[in-house]
Design a protein around this nucleic acid. Structure first.
Length: 553
DNA sequence: AGACAATGACTCC
DNA sequence: TGGAGTCCCTTGTC
């Protein structure tokens, strides 16, 4: 029989069979299985390039097989090691820099940042050591911010409601400004979902507003029922959530598709309520302003980032809305004064090593800056009045770029009076009782400490989109096409007033049989597909999962 | 179970 | 400046 080669991903496997001894069974499938077994043996048997069929196999009367193979790493293509999942644990390629901190010389498993997120982080100073002028400014600017940080209130257990009505991955989330149980979600296809998670079945999906990625949404500050959205189709929409009627404020591609070099996409967006402006930025580095009263574009587009680079984030300072923060693919976050907007006139340029996925002023005082960069670092500037040449702190955290994932963005907890609690999804998985899970991390940005990891053993996908509720103890997450609402189990919040690290994962055993879980199990997930293929009318379109917690000190 | 596709940052030339 | 090639702990579908 001719030599067989198997799977392209398993290179250099050559099986030679002696021609004078026919197999006892000629069944192709059985042969295949035998070969599989032999491969396993060889792989386990150290690293030999060529080896003979073990003697016992010959004794058993099996066909003598000679196998030549090498252990080849799928990452660096070198022999002698293999990268990839071993059960629920990912083994790094030792030839590559650490997947977490990006430094050479160690793997993710041995990375000091993996063991302790605060590794190498210098905590924020307790006393104000800046000069008197800055102090006066700061007192005016941040009246409500507590000097002494209260302990975080983190539950031991949470419940998680899951719903799936998006047909493409979720790209952005927004809580309704006044209706506590309403969550808006945008997806890659351009659909906008409105979910009343207080009433299970109350959901609405608007599919006609945009034709591709919804990159950012903001509620109209003067009308709770209308929401603005910026999309890669090059338009800004304003949608009335009651009627579903949507109007387009601006269209950057009036002549339709003329090729990728001219197609403009809108990414960053924010609203300046003082000036009644919608600010948007495109994939070529330009900022546009639209008056929300007349729906007219104001002035010409202004180049605010490197020409031809994507501007992914815009944020107006919550206290001083004339201050604008932008960030983008040119590796910079920039601070601007809206009263003097012209190319090159930024007040500060905050340098990063890679693309900056998000840059936000702190939600209460507006005096801190938090950025998420694709170099796996969160950067914090403690005061916009202080030294902005370098960040006050860099926290190594796994939130790499992957083209198939919505970019990760660290989000402030708008309820934290000390402006130090931040939520962000984690890219790399951890082996939790045999399941590879990607938790949602709560990080104290004043120390770099991981305060809590939130996870559900049923949720095996990465959760890059997260938003904390402005008033309630609610976390909304977008993971692939699913939406989650996490809430603490009632009765627990009062008891737990200590700062601690919590792991919510004690049901992970359930997934032990699974190699590593990206595919849905026998759960109800499939019933929620947009195509409605497996949708059964008598089944609810959501599920509540209880996750009991375990405290790790 | 495996193949495949969707598709973005980055480097090199 | 742009095109080709590479990166290589995704996710869902067929």
């Amino acid at each position: 029989m001719a030599p067989q080669t198997r799977r392209m991903t398993f290179p250099n496997v050559v099986i030679e069979r002696d021609t004078d001894s026919e197999p006892s069974s000629s069944d192709e499938e059985e042969e295949e299985e035998e070969v599989e077994e032999e491969e396993e043996k060889v792989v386990e048997n150290k690293n030999e390039e060529r080896m003979e069929e073990p003697l016992e196999a010959k004794k058993k009367g099996k066909t003598p097989i000679t196998i030549s193979l090498k252990k080849v790493c799928k990452v660096c293509k070198k022999v002698g090691h293999e990268a990839g999942f071993k059960g629920a644990t990912y083994i790094d390629c030792p030839m590559k820099p650490c997947f977490l901190c990006k430094m050479p010389g160690h793997t993710t498993m041995a990375c000091p940042h993996r063991v302790a997120t605060e590794h190498g982080v210098i905590p924020a100073p307790r006393r104000n050591t800046r000069n008197p002028l800055e102090y006066v400014f700061e007192r005016q600017f941040r009246p409500g911010v507590l000097r002494i940080k209260p302990a975080f209130v983190i539950p031991d257990e949470v419940t998680c409601a899951v719903i799936r009505y998006h047909s493409r991955r979720i790209t952005c989330l927004e809580f309704h400004p006044t209706s506590n149980n309403v969550l808006l979600s945008g997806d890659k296809k351009g659909q906008v979902g409105v979910w009343d998670f207080g009433k299970v079945h109350e959901k609405m999906v608007y599919g006609h507003i945009h034709s591709c990625i919804v990159n950012n949404m903001r509620f109209n500050p003067t009308n709770d029922d209308s929401v603005y959205a910026a999309s890669s189709d090059g338009t800004i929409s304003c949608t009335d959530l009651e009627t579903g009627i949507s109007l387009s404020l601006m269209n950057l591609n009036p002549d339709g598709w003329q090729g990728p070099s001219s197609w403009r996409m809108l990414y960053g967006m924010d609203i300046n309520s003082e000036k009644s402006l919608v600010l948007v930025a495109d994939n070529f580095g330009f900022l546009y302003m639209v008056d929300t009263r007349s729906n007219n574009k104001i002035g010409e587009a202004i180049l605010i980032h490197k020409k031809g680079s994507k501007v992914v984030g815009l944020h107006c300072n919550p206290v001083q809305p004339e201050l604008l923060l932008s960030c983008g693919n040119d590796h910079f976050a920039r601070i601007w004064d809206l009263r003097r907007m012209e190319a090159g006139s930024s007040l500060y340029d905050l340098a990063h090593k890679r693309v900056v996925n998000s840059a936000y002023f702190s939600p209460l005082s507006g005096s801190k800056i938090l950025t998420t960069s694709q170099d796996n670092r969160l950067r914090i500037w403690d005061s916009i009045f202080g030294d902005l040449d370098s960040p006050s702190r860099e926290i190594v955290h796994s939130h790499d770029f992957n083209r198939h994932l919505t970019p990760f963005k660290a989000e402030w907890d708008p309820k934290d009076p000390s402006e130090s609690l931040v939520v962000i999804g984690r890219y790399i998985s951890e082996n939790y009782n045999g399941a590879a899970l990607h938790p949602i991390d709560f990080i104290d940005i004043s120390t770099g400490q991981l305060v809590a990891e939130v996870m559900d053993p049923n949720i095996t996908t990465i959760t890059p989109v997260n938003k904390l509720h402005p008033r309630d103890d609610v976390l909304a997450s977008g993971s692939s096409r699913s939406l989650f609402i996490w809430r603490p189990k009632k009765s627990e919040l009062v008891e737990q007033k200590v700062e601690r690290k919590i792991v919510i994962c004690d049901r992970a055993e359930k997934k032990q049989s699974r190699k590593y879980g990206n595919k849905s199990d026998d759960s109800d997930d499939d019933k929620f597909t947009s195509k409605g293929k497996k949708l059964k009318s008598n089944k609810p379109e959501w599920k509540l999962t209880r996750c009991s917690g375990k405290v790790k000190r």
